[in-house]
Design a protein around this nucleic acid. Sequence first.
RNA 1: GAGGGUGUAGCUCAGUAGGUUAGAGCGACAGUUUGUGGCACUGUAGGUCGUGGGUUCGAGACCCAUCAUUCUCCCCA
Length: 458
Amino acid sequence: MAKVTVSLPQGTRDFSAEVVRKRNYIFNTIRNVFELYGFAPLETPAMENLDTLMGKYGEEGDKLIFKILNNGLDNPAKQEQIRTDFEKVLEGKNTKTITERALRYDLTIPFARYVAMNYGQLTLPFKRYQIQPVWRADRPQKGRYREFYQCDADVVGSNSLLNEVELANIYATVFAKLGVEVEIRINSRKILAALAELCGGADKLIDITIAIDKLDKIGIEKVKEELVQRGLAVAQIDIIEKYLAITGSNEEILAAVTALIGHTEIGKAGIEEIEYVLEYNSPLTTHHSPLTIDLTLARGLNYYTGLIFEVKAIGVQMGSIGGGGRYDDLTGLFGVPNVPGVGISFGVDRIYDVMEELKLFPETVHTGVKILFFNLGEQESKVAFALMQQLRNNNIGCELFHEAAKMDKQFKYADKKQIPIAIIIGSKELEEGTCLVKDLLLGEQKTIAQSDLVKEFI
RNA sequence: GAGGGUGUAGCUCAGUAGGUUAGAGCGACAGUUUGUGGCACUGUAGGUCGUGGGUUCGAGACCCAUCAUUCUCCCCA
């Protein structure tokens, strides 16, 4: 046989039967909870117009968008134009003659585009969920792929904090069902904005958030260094250091942060939001979410304006497995202003890795056929085939071994495919009109009439 | 964008300081066993050692380049 040298693009994966079943288990769990909370499904195309995506994810994000090369670039009639345009591409500009479409980078921006396009028809508040792959031209590493799934739930057209409460509950419910122990961290962009205000202006917000987001990785001294590099004065950094020094229970954190920034209007608003959501998550409500205030939580995406979420799995080294937050004006980017929204996202691929590492998948994710009919000859397999079809008509999954082979081989096949029951019809059973039903897990077997077989399994 | 690690059989890896015909385990296939599996035993197939150059009497091993892959940082799910 010729040596084949096929491979997969970097950061992409094939999913075998077992993996697909495990992944579906996660998808179904999430989907069921979304539906339970009144969210309706939406799907959007794999590709969007490049204009829709560019500039929405920051400078870094733009670089990570997979652009699709236009067709017909080899058209001799347009060669001159394409050459000059390609020069512009080399300078970092995008040119429509070279590329005008791109693979979606997340589900939020396509959703915002959808809302903007269909605003007149939507019943507000509009609650949708979306489970689809996204693509990023990132360097792959542990828990990071170039093609991965996101599961988003968003509400637009409502300012109510009840939405935040519900989304936090969705997180708690899904991870409880999956058996993954998590910490749901919350913070408010308003608190960060207040901090920025105290430290010399709103224009420093992004610099500050980027720096403090790294606290648990690089430590307070390095964060201070970075803040100096980003042009903050010593007095301003002192305030940030005080802010970052705040620790303790949720109540203690709230008290301390109120003392620090509670006198600013925006800071007060942020604190009140967090208090509201925490109150709803008191033990009085059905789901007691493990919500933790994390003042260093900032989130990279700069469209967030209110409460922000991030979910970390406990007991395993892994980046965040979910995140989200409130954005005031996402559709404003597409010409429909003043539509507030809030959403969350699940990182299924990382959740899968976490569950695999902690061995949290239940045995029951295997959903192959229940029964294997042995094939012991031409006459025998005809009878087996007829019985098999009867079972299938009754919604019982089964298959017949593809050829008359040694029993030992057929047993091994059942074993490999994890089929729990074998039905054996040989010359003896053929004569008697019976069949032998063997439970392969217990090793027990019994002979029953062929006419009783369907009854046996219904 | 920056920096490491690793590429030897279908898979996981040995291969010692360069030295004849490159090994193991698992898997596959066949047999012991023509109607009772998972175990055991026996046997068979499968490799131009990622690719291209160089050093050497001699390279899987050393050097350079290249490709692939993986991990860390950046950023993120």
